[in-house]
Design a protein around this nucleic acid. Structure first.
Lengths: 358, 358
DNA sequence: CTGTCTTACTAAACCGGTCTAGCTGTTGCA
DNA sequence: TGCAACAGCTAGACCGGTTTAGTAAGACAG
């Protein structure tokens, strides 16, 4: 005989299929005594529900989908995704919900997968990452009518639930720190310009620069790749008046930048301070270890999973959620600039109003 | 009305459900004219099969499973998995087969997932990674009776299909190269000792050392983490007579080792040559870029997916498969040892029999 | 012209669950 | 005592496909 079905259990327990279904799903309609007996028989026969059969009755697929749009061969080191995955799994597997993962080439393909999985009833909901400006995926997901949780935001009005960390505050904390130790010329190697968080970071830097009266605060967009990170760094460091600090939007780029500095004989942190917007093993293992923004990506994954399951369960009015603002972990890649001004004193030698004279 | 079902199509095309099923699945039993008409109606109504309904009839789940046993929070940078995933997806998605991914804590949990997914009919087969010595998972998979492809091998006799690259040859090529440029004291920071490939590499180093008459060739097992990689490197470099070259089993450890060298003031490659057994962005972006063994992990993923689909389809006697031996990519982290012997001349100053006197 | 074989199709069973309608026996209350 | 309410259960429809058994019509051989 193949695997046992509820019919087998029903026969052996001397009840009907329906009673077995009620009992095993913890719903009323059977006495405690019968329920216990059915549980015991199910245990004995080592019964497990057939996921397809369950999903057929219009019920759950007990799976959620995650589609990542990245050119297949260039999926990088980004520890972000592995961390996120771990966090997601921690929660999902506790609820016996599987994760359907797919890596596709571009947003168009991603949308196609959303459509297919929806019409095939493969998943109960989606996790959306890499939120873009005027993101075309949101309308599609809305039309498909499946629950979704979006990483990034906040959004205005309707649309799927969003979860995000405050990129603006994070960038401000970096710039404040750099300015406090005396940096006046700061560059920022940003990510893809059509990502929302990229824009938010760029704006934050500009605002902070204005407020602090920095001499220079330049954001350079890149594609997040090590190659562009290295190239842009080389360009910046070749200028006659180069920045004394560079903020990188990803740790891969930061490490690449560190490599370029080494190659050009620019001492880190002596002549150049480096800050990574992303903390991971990568930032810790290089020499010098990088000052970086630490966020708990694992916890983010857990939260996303929890929220998605809640939305699927129609559990209450879970509104957009903000994660704790990432905190700056200072390591050895940052120091006051060589020959620079001490904290509180700007490049012209005048004292900032807010600070104590030293 | 909800999504269209084959019953809707049948009604509109004026045929029976059975005819529609035959037509859409390309099996005989309908005329070409009818088939075309059915296809057109299905197209018009934008019909997609309900994966659960299909899976219910004892048929395919159209999904394969990949379970990775790693402590959730410590999933590292390992680009290996992202690359492998990309390769897998490239093939799987072309066949509309989904990938069920799960990250678990340990082998016991992994086995539990195999059992659950099997009895829930969630997947048609498994991809098994991190092959161990006397691997307990093989017996379980065999008992479950689901197709599987194992990364690592070769295996003797029965069991699931295996796919592997020749770790022995790879290690030999590294040692031969290092010896050729004059290194006589080589250390090897190995991975987890219960992994098969770890043992194979350790043995290869020992054999090569004997053959080449090296002064020292030490393998140190680690847990693949950056922390142990750094610690072991520190120990090695603190010894009075330290190795002139270190081979790292993963690029994360290699980069960590590079960091330690920098911190201890040991010049790379001047005083220490570093080779990584794994090539990725990581190896390229540090300074100096690392000499590393390049293997096409993406292609490996593709091959694994192709083989698994073939096994699932019962397609022929696909036997164990060997991938091309990885080739050494020489970058700037290796050079002849400081004060060492030139190629072909051993430490006692005598000339190797096989080489031309310089 | 009959009998057999093939082709093209239909009707209905089936997969393994969920869920609703209905049936029975007991209890509560007027 | 009589009736309603309810707990505890059963029978069977149902989800959307696949697959098998059966049928009607046409082709072909003898």
């Amino acid at each position: 005989m193949g695997r046992p079905t509820i019919a087998d259990i029903a026969r052996r327990a001397g009840v009907s299929k329906g009673a077995v279904s009620f009992a095993l799903n913890g719903r009323p309609g059977v006495s405690e005594a019968t329920r216990a007996r059915i549980f015991q028989v199910a245990e004995e026969m080592n019964w497990r529900p057939h996921s397809a059969a369950r999903a057929l009755g219009g019920a759950r697929a007990d799976a959620v989908g995650l589609v990542i749009a990245r050119p297949a061969r260039t999926i990088g080191v980004e520890p972000f995704f592995s961390q996120l995955l771990s966090g997601l799994q921690a929660v999902l597997s506790a609820h016996s919900v599987a994760l359907h993962l797919m890596v596709v080439e571009d947003t168009a393909a991603e949308i196609e997968v959303y459509r297919r999985w929806t019409s095939e009833h493969r998943v109960d909901g989606f996790i959306v990452v890499d939120l873009q400006l005027r993101d075309p995926r949101l309308a599609v997901l809305d039309a498909l009518g499946l629950p979704a949780v979006v990483l990034g935001g906040p959004g205005k009005g309707a649309g799927p639930l969003r979860i995000w960390a405050d990129d603006r505050e994070a960038m401000l904390s970096i710039v404040d720190y750099l300015a406090a130790i005396g940096h006046r010329r700061i560059a920022h190697l940003a990510g893809l310009p059509h990502f929302q968080h990229t824009q938010r970071r760029i704006r934050a830097l500009r605002d902070a620069s204005r407020r602090l009266g920095l001499e220079e605060a330049l954001s350079v967009p890149t594609d997040f790749s090590d190659a562009e990170g290295a190239a842009a760094t080389r360009t910046l460091l070749s200028r006659p008046r180069r920045p004394t600090a560079i903020v990188y939007d990803s740790d891969v780029m930061a490490v690449a930048g560190l490599g370029v500095a080494g190659e050009m004989g620019v001492a880190v942190p002596g002549e150049l301070s480096i800050v990574s917007f992303d903390d991971s093993v990568l930032a810790r293992i290089v020499h010098p270890p990088l000052t970086a923004l630490s966020r708990d990506t694992f916890a983010l994954g857990e939260q996303v999973a929890r929220s998605l399951l809640a939305v699927i369960d129609d559990a209450g009015p879970d509104r957009d959620l903000q994660m704790p603002t990432p905190r700056l972990t200072v390591r050895e890649s940052t120091s006051p600039p060589a020959g620079g001004s001490p904290a509180g004193v700007n490049s012209t030698g005048t004292v900032d109003s807010a600070s104590e004279p030293v």
